[in-house]
Simulated scan of single mutants.
Amino acid sequence: MSETANWSYTATATIWRKLEGTDEYGDPLGYALPEQIMVDYEGGLSKRIGSLGAEIVVKNTVWTEFALAEAGDYLLIGISTEFDPIVAGADEVRQVIRYADTFDRMADDFAIITGV
């Protein structure tokens, strides 16, 4: 962990990474066991309901050095040992953005954006 991340990423989140492959309906085959990662986070908007239905919008932005998150994974701010991310109340990862480790050049940083 870089020196900057050492003081910055002080919260714990749980991530469930989707397993490789899909079933005959295109759904994930399931999720790996939950992993705890060190993060910092910011809450955002959640769901807007309008005359044409519900719109998915950003719920949380999570910053971390964890490099394995992908869209379709599930993330929960806090610690969970629940096997099912939906039961745990986790949010789906919609996008992962990579940022350079500007100061230490040890490990890149990532913004994990979740939506509902």
Rank of each mutant, 00 (worst) to 15 (best):
Y99A: 10
R17G: 01
L68D: 12
I77P: 04
E65P: 00
D23C: 09
L19H: 10
V58G: 12
L68S: 09
A67K: 10
E55K: 13
Q95L: 14
I112R: 00
T61Q: 05
K59W: 10
F110T: 08
G21K: 07
Y31Q: 03
G78N: 02
G30C: 13
D84Q: 06
A32F: 04
S8P: 07
T61Y: 00
G21L: 06
P34V: 01
A13R: 00
G78R: 07
D27A: 12
T10K: 15
G53F: 08
G78T: 03
A100H: 12
F66E: 05
G43Q: 15
G43D: 15
W7F: 13
D23Y: 09
A11V: 03
T10N: 13
L33M: 12
G43W: 14
I37P: 00
D104L: 01
T61S: 11
E24L: 09
E82F: 01
E92S: 14
I113F: 09
I97N: 12
T10W: 10
S2V: 09
D84R: 05
I112L: 06
A32G: 12
R17Q: 10
P34N: 04
Y99W: 13
V62I: 13
D109P: 00
S80V: 03
E35V: 11
A100N: 14
G21P: 04
E70N: 03
A69R: 00
G78D: 04
T114C: 04
M106E: 08
A67S: 15
A32R: 09
L52P: 00
I77T: 12
F83M: 05
D40G: 15
A100P: 09
N6K: 14
D101P: 02
E92K: 13
S51F: 01
G78P: 05
T14E: 01
V58C: 11
S51D: 10
E70S: 07
G89H: 12
T64V: 07
G43A: 15
P28C: 13
A90F: 03
E35D: 14
D109L: 04
E3K: 12
Y41F: 15
E35W: 11
R98E: 14
P34D: 03
S80M: 04
A111M: 13
T102K: 06
V62N: 00
V57Q: 11
S80D: 10
R94S: 06
I77K: 04
P85L: 06
Y31M: 09
A67W: 12
I97W: 14
T102Y: 08
T12M: 04
K59H: 08
A11Y: 04
E24V: 11
L52I: 05
W7P: 01
